[in-house]
């Protein structure tokens, strides 16, 4: 078994003045280079999880280890060099007056020398395909473009892990696609670990592994195939099921036999094709 890059052990967290624990005894590992998707209804604790991972909050019980370092208040600045985060609202994380200034912001904070900064800004903008917008001001950019700039800002710091905290939820379908494709290309090209918190099931279906959160607890952990086999249960948790699962269900109730429980859209088409040609 590979060694985990992040591990959570019995993590519990409660916001001040709230009765319910936002997170209760959550334990799981994240492995180097994987794409992990965390799903759950609003208020399930998934965003709190992201805040704890980057040291914006600290667990009241349990511990979090990132790249072998146990996270505490003294070493958060080192941890933040290893984990980058893209937030939900494209506007409220754009600090710079232009695209290049925004990408440079994190580098300035780390005291990177200017020549190196210029190089890294250019390099990261190239990776997210935003080079031609170097001097653009944020209010002239679309939501998807702003999120790509935010990703470039994270990449410039050369982190091992990137967290997308509902980073596509305020975007239109085109913007959503832009962002997901950008991150996917990055992950394919080198060993970047992606933790994506999302409602978008089509996006989740492409992950290596999924975690389902419910009421502050880890409800289920598994491959998308395993998770989507839960069908009705997912709906009860306030989530949705992907289209191919809905379709497969309809086929079964219409009396069309299928080989296994979870099938992707392509598999479903192929299966129907075989059953037709068999006749």
């Amino acid at each position: 078994m590979e060694t985990p890059i992040v591990s959570l052990n019995g993590v519990t967290f409660q916001y001040d003045g709230q009765e319910r624990k936002a997170l209760n005894q959550v334990s799981f590992d994240i492995y180097d280079g994987e794409w992990l998707t965390i799903v759950g209804h609003n208020g399930s604790g998934k965003s709190t999880l992201a805040k704890l991972l980057i040291g914006l909050q600290f667990p009241s019980e349990g511990e979090i280890t990132v790249c072998g370092i146990k996270l505490n208040e003294e070493n958060i600045w080192d941890i933040r060099k290893k984990i980058g985060m893209v937030f939900q609202n494209p506007d409220n994380q754009f600090v710079g007056t232009t695209v290049q200034d925004d990408v440079a912001f994190g580098l300035e904070n780390m005291g990177i020398p200017r020549e190196e900064m210029v190089h890294r800004v250019e390099d990261s903008l190239k990776k997210v395909n935003m080079t031609q917008f170097l001097h653009q001001e944020p209010h002239h950019l679309s939501g998807g473009q702003k999120q790509r700039v935010a990703i470039a800002g994270v990449l410039a710091l050369r982190p091992a892990i990137i967290i997308l905290d509902e980073a596509t939820s305020m975007l239109d379908p085109r913007g959503r696609e832009e962002v997901v494709e950008t991150v996917r290309a990055l992950q394919d090209e080198k060993s970047l670990t992606v933790i994506s918190i999302t409602h978008d099931l089509e996006e989740a279906a492409k992950a290596d592994r999924m975690i389902v959160m419910n009421k502050g607890e880890l409800f289920r952990e598994g491959t998308p195939e395993e998770i989507f086999s839960m069908d009705e249960q997912l709906i009860q948790l306030g989530l949705d099921i992907p289209f191919s699962v809905k379709m497969a269900k309809a086929f079964r109730s219409a009396g069309i036999p299928l080989s296994k429980h979870y099938l992707s859209e392509e598999e479903l088409v192929t299966e129907l094709w075989t059953s037709r040609s068999r006749m």
């Binding site: 914006l56 600045w77 933040r80 937030f87 409220n92 290049q100 904070n109 710091l157």
Partner: peptide, 21 residues
């Protein structure tokens, strides 16, 4: 939200900061 995003990107005051512009 901006303050949180800035902190997550490693901002902790002017000390030791370099300038891009």
């Amino acid at each position: 939200e901006l303050a949180i995003a800035m902190e997550a990107r490693g901002y902790r005051g002017g000390e030791g900061r370099t300038k891009y512009r």
